[in-house]
Write a protein that binds this DNA or RNA. Sequence first.
DNA 1: TCTGGGGTCCTAGGACCC
DNA 2: TCTGGGGTCCTAGGACCC
Length: 424
Amino acid sequence: MFALVDCNNFYASCERVFQPKLRKQPIVVLSNNDGCVISRSNEAKEKGVPMGAVAYQYEAFFKKENIHVVSSNYPLYGDMSNRVMTLLAEFSPDIEVYSIDEAFLKFEGFEAYFNLQEYGNKIRYRVTKGTGIPISVGIAPTKVLAKVANRIAKKFPDKTGNVYLIDNEEKRIKALKWLAIEDVWGIGYRLSKTLKKEGINTAYDFTQRNEAWVQKLMGIVGLRLYKELLGINCLDLEVVEDKKNIATTRSFDKNYTDYEYIKERVITFAISCAEKLRKQQSCCNALMVFLKTNRHRKELEQYSNSYVMQLPYPTNSNIEIAQFATKALEKIFKKGLAYKKAGVIVMDFSPSATQQMNLFANSNPKHQKLMEVIDKINQKTGTNKIKLATQDLSRTWKMKQKQLSKRYTTEIDDAIIVRVEEKE
DNA sequence: TCTGGGGTCCTAGGACCC
DNA sequence: TCTGGGGTCCTAGGACCC
């Protein structure tokens, strides 16, 4: 059996842990630059705020409905996620952290020793008590069915207590008849449209077709999904491996035409990629830089381009990656356009420990030590204390974050202070 | 004025090998 | 004039996930 544990309204819930006045209140969390809604409390959902709502278009609505608006605080969410995952790991030796707010647990042979419904209740109690984050637990014979069970647990908290178990045919069929086809894990916007045209509206309808039909339409991925819904196990826990690509991309707060400005941004993105590379002890052998104008401003000239550069040697040095990224940017930058977004993606990794030397050009060996020192200092004093001169220290780039909460769990100065009144 | 960011896997087709 | 059989690797694009 598998369990899928999912944090309810994760970002919104994180904010509430340290700001009790937000509990029971409608609250929404915004994306970077305070662009659009990416997390909503149940109360905000009930008031009709859709996922992805554009913040400035909803400003009046938020005010009218007394909806609290919060900027996203990723250091806080990342740390809270680690706490949740640490507690979950107490409940099974086999755990796959699937995303920042979700994990699969494998219960191999647990049925003989535990009542899984009670076990699920215990997990929920432990995590909620230990972190303040409410969770939902779905338990079933396959990962896809565990996803389904989780959805039921979340949708019917009163009936299920946020824990639901699919452990017999009757429950499986009932669940699949209830589940709309577009809500099946692995069926996205495109496929659900195609399937509906075929008269398939629920997960159950889908399971009534035959294997050959499914394979022809959806390939091997669809076939696995189909079998998993029938209760036949095809997907095991996945080992979380090193990343194969690493990206740092941002929209700007407004449009920019200035080459120097864009260059500074690209260099900063490149350095962020280099830092992430060093964290997983990889070097990259290629990188891509892309540049886009504002696609929402139809009246302005549109342009979007990218350049992939093969590197002469593998590297994870801030300095080298920044230099190559700048060269890539020069290839695609066009004067006179209003840019809104740029990004750097590093690709084609090799382990930093075993570097293939090149006859003609190699990564500067001095950089390795230098980067170690930079990483140490940045870690000690907070990020971005040490910069390259090309990042132009006079330009302080700030993301729009009007309602940013504190880093309660990762910055000592932001920790909650409990005051005890002293009596004379 | 303002519209997020970061990933994975699969497939088909082209180029190339013996 | 005819033109086999079996493979790999790479890339772009499509689809999906949170």
